[in-house]
Amino acid sequence: MIGSAQAFVDILKTIQRCAKVDVPVLINGETGTGKELAARALHYAGPRRAGPFQALNCGAIPDLLVENELFGHVRGAYTDARGTQPGLVELASGGTLFLDEVDALSYKAQGALLRFIQDGTYRELGGGTDKRADVRVVSASNKSLEALARAGKFRQDLMYRLNTLIVDMPSLRERREDIPALVTYFLQASEKEFSLGSKHFHPQSITDIISYGWPGNIRELENFVRRAYLLTDGQVIFQSPDKSPDHCSNLSPAGDGPARRCNGAQQAIVPFSDAKRLAVDYFESSYIAQLLRTTGGNLSRAAQLAGKERRAFSRLVKKHGIIRSDF
């Protein structure tokens, strides 16, 4: 998890506090804010870190199969059940069960989950006896469970079982100062994956990226950076986010302004001083990454090429969270 914005630092502290207590946790947040990463951080920072981490996207499983996925089945439970299959609850025993999009569960599935959370027991489909599993349940939703409960679409008793502790993930709009570091990280990841050489964004593109609304949050940003990296032949990326997340706007390589401006509906007005600081942050992080890549991670040699003292250069590396071993 990458970031130094106060909203992000605060959520890391919340995760650390929640990890110490073995009770259910509900993670709220818009799509693409990193809810599963937060769930994994809760698991690996807590006392169950040595146990398994099992995840289920409740919105991606047909209602008829949810209980089968959670609790498993015995042979003969239904026509195609030719053998016994353990559910995720059993597989997660001693560890963490992460339920993403928990708001998508039907009322029937909610009742079965409630029973398990209440007493730790469940019954396989077709089974005749109750089984027990020691599991910590972490759930996530991009909708308000309280609002759904008031509307009669989510069991209130289950909501109170799931939200013993709550983690509210900040949107990318609430942590714009982390965007330069995230862009650098995703560019480095793309370079490693596709081996198309080192690339960086044009300063005007960075200004547009920082100002963009990012309704899809970090997932949308990652997708944009990967696409821009793949579609750019040279070292400088002349692309900016468009209102539509499915395509990019191209900037004129001659530097005479955008060939197509971003739609203002998705843009935020960033004060000049903030935009300048964030653009400088991006320049620093991408420049340092380029030097370390050139020197194979040799800090002294990179500092020498930059014309800076080793100690000052080391502070910049630390400031931007750059890991030398990645080079």
Rank of each mutant, 00 (worst) to 15 (best):
T121I: 07
R226T: 14
E220F: 04
L165N: 12
R293M: 10
L105T: 07
K108T: 15
F98A: 10
A39K: 01
S190E: 14
P47R: 02
A60V: 14
P24V: 01
A289W: 03
T184D: 12
P253H: 09
T14N: 08
I15R: 00
R176N: 05
T232L: 10
I209E: 01
H43F: 06
A151G: 13
C262N: 13
G197V: 09
G3M: 02
R132Y: 06
G216P: 08
Q290F: 11
E174S: 15
G128H: 01
D80C: 06
L316A: 06
F154P: 02
S249D: 10
D168A: 15
D134N: 13
I61G: 04
V138S: 00
Y229H: 01
F8T: 11
A39P: 03
L12S: 09
G94C: 13
H200N: 08
A41R: 02
N163D: 15
S141V: 01
K131N: 07
A19N: 04
P215L: 08
T33H: 03
K243S: 14
E36G: 04
V23S: 08
R173I: 10
P170C: 11
N250P: 10
L158I: 13
I117G: 07
P47I: 11
L251S: 06
L37W: 00
F194K: 03
F154G: 05
L231T: 14
G257C: 11
A303W: 07
K108G: 15
P203V: 05
V137K: 00
A228C: 09
R315G: 04
A7R: 00
F327L: 09
P258A: 14
E90L: 06
A55I: 04
L292V: 01
R150A: 15
H73C: 05
Y282T: 02
S139H: 04
K243N: 13
K319F: 10
G128W: 01
Y78C: 08
E90D: 11
L26V: 07
G111C: 08
K35W: 00
G264H: 08
Y44L: 12
L278H: 09
F224T: 05
G76H: 04
G321P: 04
L97S: 03
Q54D: 10
S195W: 15
V23N: 07
L182M: 14
D326I: 11
R176P: 11
L291S: 00
K143H: 12
G126L: 02
L196N: 12
E146N: 13
T294S: 06
Y44E: 10
I166Y: 12
